[in-house]
Design a protein around this nucleic acid. Structure first.
Lengths: 241, 241
DNA sequence: TGTACATCAGTGAACGCGCGTTCACTGATGTAC
DNA sequence: TGTACATCAGTGAACGCGCGTTCACTGATGTAC
């Protein structure tokens, strides 16, 4: 039935290579025209094959789109994880490094960013396969907060008390996300994550046109302010042990 | 040449009516399939006319799209302005009323919201005509801050000092936007506006799936927190001599 | 108040294009004996 | 090591559809004298 793990033969290798090629070309076309305009025929044309051949690799256009979405989440997830300077660095530095890297990636890959953080493609329903990949950037950011809480270099943010419904939702996140972290901080973290993507989207989608001109400085300022509200303190690093 | 203001004749009235009808049907189709799928032929079909007839009213598909965008900005602008309880109310109450109304509108008009705040339609360039309409909601929100500053019920937010590049950009906004308001507060206001749209987009575009369940409570909490950071204080209202 | 002309709305056919997907097929690659 | 069969990749034609826009046209509505 399925090709087992033993079949590292030429056919399987060629297949994997072509899947990669198709996605590469599709991603390239996405860059130029956006997700709605992504076309099976255009992709196969660029690959020099006949349009029907793609059905050996993807059962439909939507499946190709799904593959691209997962790849894109993974690409930005990689960027975030590799940008993290790690526990040795100050929490604020880590926050700025990761969010800055995500923004840089987004600026360089606007359409791919829009594919995952822009308006959903109409008629397309994201399958649950995307969830894990989608969680990687938020996980990297939550990691900072978790480490900071463990090292106790975090100030408790002087928060409004949480309304019960919000507390309940956030409490439910705690066990899997950040066991040692107070509920109010987790709520702040969700807001902060919202701000990261909100700020990048505002910039890339043109809503700060004629408002902000130095986008680098603006984004860093916003992220510094957001980090402060998260209780990631400014000067200290380390702690831990 | 152009039909003068005197020609309030049947022809001009019919024309205006049909322009309205076309936009109504187009908006309706937008709701069902999104902006990329908006089709001249589908619109005219639903109106019972031949596809070429629309060129009497809109020179191209893009112009129809532009008209829809402006109308949408105006629709949400109306919503925001009408939701404002006015100077008599506490700043926080005004903030929650306006942002809550914008969110309600967005939930009820997801595709229209996506048209203006989602990913830009590829290949489409928004003409400058949209600027004024686009400014109405942010203007309504800035109005709260301006009034609060004038009445002095606003606490200075204890802010990080602004980096020079950010200060310069924000300073440039001040004269036209909020003359009496400190630069740091204006910077905060831009962040707050980013958060309003960021939070709504996160909810509507599915990024809080399995994270937040009570979206009403969450949004209000986020907006209360944002208002507090803006220096709109919680209990007091009025002031203003 | 009536006529001649200009303006405009809407028609219907056509141009030229693109799309996703199905289907029977040819050859090449792999597998089992 | 060689042969018979199964699997798979890719072809090429076709189906049935949709799209935006142009163009010459028919009639109806408006305007100037």
């Amino acid at each position: 039935m399925t090709v087992g793990p033993a079949s590292r033969n030429a056919r399987a290798l060629a297949r994997a290579e072509l899947v990669r090629e198709i996605k590469r070309v599709a991603r390239h076309q996405l860059t130029e025209a956006g997700a709605a305009a992504l076309s099976i025929r255009a992709v196969t044309r660029e690959l020099g094959m006949v349009s029907s051949a793609i059905y050996r690799y993807f059962p439909s256009r939507d499946d190709l789109l799904t593959a691209l979405i997962i790849d894109t989440y993974d690409a930005v997830g990689d960027v975030a994880e590799q940008a993290d300077p790690g526990r040795a660095a100050a929490p604020v530095a880590r926050w700025l490094a990761i969010t800055g890297a995500v923004r840089s990636w987004a600026c360089a890959h606007v359409q791919e960013y829009a594919l995952i953080f822009g308006s959903p493609v109409p008629g397309y329903v994201a399958p649950p396969d995307t969830i894990d990949a989608a969680a990687r950037v938020p996980n990297a950011l939550v990691g900072i907060i978790r480490d900071a809480a463990a090292a106790d270099v975090r100030d408790q943010p002087s928060d409004l008390s949480l309304p019960p419904a919000v507390a309940a939702d956030v409490e439910a996140l705690r066990p899997s996300l950040a066991p040692g972290v107070p509920v109010a901080v987790i709520a702040r973290a969700v807001m902060a994550w919202t701000m990261v993507i909100g700020a990048i989207s505002f910039e890339l989608f043109g809503h700060l046109q004629n408002v902000i001109h130095d986008f680098d400085a603006w984004f860093e300022h916003v992220m510094r302010t957001t980090a402060a509200e998260l209780g990631l303190d400014q000067e200290e690093g380390r702690g831990h042990g």
